[in-house]
């Protein structure tokens, strides 16, 4: 999957001296996932998917991955809005209720 991932080695500054000189931070640094927002999760049926790119384009979170053999969903950052399933022309994505094991 070619998606930005959580930087598990991120460390907060340990002293005033370690703080940046102004209110800035490294761009593109993620320290936490958005998975906990989800009530329903999109599940992709690769057999029905025609890789039309629609879900990849319209996902507000960019959570659809098209880099592998089949499209995949980055569940760390998918918020479960359901746009991909609603818009999918071949109905290849269905929304399933999350269990209690979501982080």
């Amino acid at each position: 999957m070619q998606k930005p991932s959580i930087n598990h080695s991120f460390q907060y500054p340990g002293s005033i001296g370690e703080m940046p000189s102004g209110p800035c931070a490294d761009a593109g640094v993620l320290v936490e996932a958005n998975a906990g927002w989800r009530v329903f999760r999109p599940v992709l049926d690769a057999a029905k998917c025609v890789k039309c790119l629609k879900c990849w384009l319209i996902c507000p979170d960019g959570a659809i991955d098209r880099s592998g053999k089949d499209y995949a969903i980055d569940y760390a950052f998918c918020k479960g809005c359901g746009i991909c399933a609603y818009e999918c022309p071949t109905k290849s994505i269905r929304m399933e209720k999350e269990g209690d094991d979501v982080e």
């Binding site: 000189s21 102004g22 209110p23 800035c24 931070a25 490294d26 761009a27 593109g28």
Partner: peptide
Amino acid sequence: PTENRLDLAAPKSCCISV
């Protein structure tokens, strides 16, 4: 300048919310 700037080689988010 310090690292607190817009630089393509070392991208920062500046004037951030804390």
